[in-house]
Design a protein around this nucleic acid. Structure first.
Lengths: 341, 341
DNA sequence: GTAGCTCGTTAAACCGGTTTAATCATTGCT
DNA sequence: AGCAATGATTAAACCGGTTTAACGAGCTAC
């Protein structure tokens, strides 16, 4: 492919002039501009993005680091989050580099990514990558609360604790006391926050959230989210006799509902179900329609993108953003009336 | 951040030596290697990816171009496809650059992307981008058949025509003659191929596929895939009186099922439904479980990725790959018995 | 007519790596 | 000891752009 020198030579001008015709940083006379452009077209010249990035020290690319396991699909939450990131970035001319490469322990194999900023999804506890990005001077925003919280890290998160408290409150208010919580995987900070919130709701009423009633999703045990919901409800209902189920996602809720149907339980008459949802379209289509909590995952992604782009322009910008969830009451929960039926 | 010259100077060696310590292209003595590495660590040096890309003329990045509209989410099909691309790329050390930027008409604003190859999702008719990538010498693979098919373009696609034929055959075999086809958007080549295939199945039996029974999804008319299914079935059932529905996706099928329930129809007794599906987990959870066609979208993405990486290494590799679909019979279709009930 | 401006253009340095060709230090062989 | 062969290291050119500082031409001002 033709490069800037070819164009300059053929148009009888210097490299710098060609550069300015394309970048418009300095004005170039109309005759010269026209000549350069026509030569460029003839030669099929397009500026080389990599060379330009090297010179201006900007790539206009945001890195999105997320785990992606061999046997697992992206969850609805992740998809919505990514969608938010992409939409927000593309509005300001940024592109998104998806990176799911496993961490390489061989430092010599590791090179600084060609990105202006990074969004890191679901950081682990004491995540070493955080320090690495700081060292490289690359703006970093986490999606999900860091653990431990060093205080000088930008992140966005849901109000998980409060949300779980409200959900618990909602169900306890309706007279449910025996509630199954199909929680997220235990290595995620969200799962701890949510368990805490629910636990508080119980304590506020002088009750105790019993640990048998809190199950954690495990990639080992459960093939998929819906299988998780199905298997746990199918295998525990007889012994635990709960009257309500809080499901981590709508997929989990779907599995739980199928198990309930097979047990001959009516929803919501015999069993209330609420999903910490992420897919409004799906919740609308079940019978009964699913009461759920809107996590605003797309907004979560959008806020993360906004934040990282802000940090790119103002290198000591730093902030945390909590995206509030919304309880959406549909038809799958009902007051617990007692031991009749 | 420290650069290679800083490291070279402090370690008392030349740039080239530092470069070789990191890239391992030429052997460097153990004492020197050790000294360079420790200096690099002290200085917090990581090789600059952009500079390296410029020098070696490779970025190890695959571009994934897809449309993403303001008000629309990614469909399950797209998500699975992307997942396939990512997994395949990351196995060979490539990263994926998601690009949803609108096409810029101002040529001076357009620059060659920092990618070694491109996967282009859902090309339009006579897509100008195809010629542009050829001009820039960037390997290109389409997902979805190009229109017109110039013959020298690599692409992957489902066997859409054949698949629709088989689905039609399956339903006609069971005695259905009046079949509603909730097809994809009319500007997609898949929708034409599928309509053709279904039409052939009818003709093979001396029947004609009537155009009233083929509906196309429209972003204007329908808020979401499930709304599409719901609205069309709710508004046409009384007049069209079909006994089977072919839904473009499982979401569409979900909406159609809800409409059927509200019309008092039993599935599959009164109405058979089959989804040209993309979400196996979802189809399992409905009652009745949804008979559907597995599109292998993840494999579609993986094949596209394989192909483009092959073209990067062998610039005149070129091929087309058809990924076969699989009809998965579950519970939502039943033979049409006649006008009883 | 010359000093002072602005405007357009250019040559050269720079961004941070890789690679080639040459140099230097060892070792092996006769 | 003499010479070839081998291996490690380096200086310099290169990848394809941007940017700085300098410069020449064309104006106005006095």
């Amino acid at each position: 492919m033709a490069n800037i020198d070819d164009v300059a030579k053929m148009a009888g001008v210097s490299k710098g002039t060609v550069s300015n015709v394309f970048s418009k940083k300095r004005p170039i006379g109309p005759k010269v501009t026209e000549r350069v452009l026509s030569v460029a077209k003839e030669l099929g010249y397009y500026p080389n993005h990599v060379a330009r990035s090297l010179a201006i020290k900007k790539t206009m690319i945001i890195g999105l680091k997320m785990p992606l396991f061999k046997k697992r699909e992206m969850s609805g939450l992740e998809v919505q989050m990514i969608t938010g990131v992409i939409k927000e970035c593309s509005m300001l001319g940024y592109r998104v580099l998806l990176d799911t490469l496993p961490e390489h322990d061989d430092v010599t194999q590791f090179s600084a990514d060609p990105v202006d900023g990074v969004i890191l999804l679901n950081p682990r506890e004491n995540d070493v990558r955080i320090e690495r990005f700081r060292q490289m001077g690359i703006p970093l925003v986490l999606v999900g609360r860091p653990e431990p919280n060093l205080g000088d890290i930008s992140y966005v998160d849901n109000n998980n604790t409060e949300m779980a408290f409200q959900v618990g409150d909602y169900l306890l208010n309706m007279g449910h006391q025996s509630i199954l919580f199909l929680n997220a995987s235990s290595d995620m900070t969200v799962s701890k926050d949510r368990e805490n919130g629910l636990s508080q709701a119980f304590r506020q009423r002088g009750l105790e959230l019993q640990s048998d009633y809190v199950i954690n999703y495990s990639r080992m045990l459960h093939a998929s989210a819906s299988e998780y919901g199905y298997m746990v409800v199918a295998s525990t209902y007889k012994s635990l006799k709960y009257t309500a189920v809080i499901a981590d996602t709508d997929r989990v809720a779907l599995g739980a509902m199928r198990a309930a149907r097979e047990l001959g339980l009516e929803i919501p008459e015999d069993l209330s179900i609420i999903a910490l949802s992420n897919d409004a379209a799906l919740a609308q289509e079940t019978t009964p329609r699913l009461t759920s909590v809107e996590l605003e995952a797309e907004q979560l992604g959008a806020e993360a993108a906004k934040l990282v782009m802000q940090m790119i322009n103002d290198s000591n910008a730093l902030s945390q953003k909590i995206v509030n969830t919304r309880l959406i009451v549909r038809e799958s929960c009902r007051a617990y009336i007692g031991a009749e039926r």
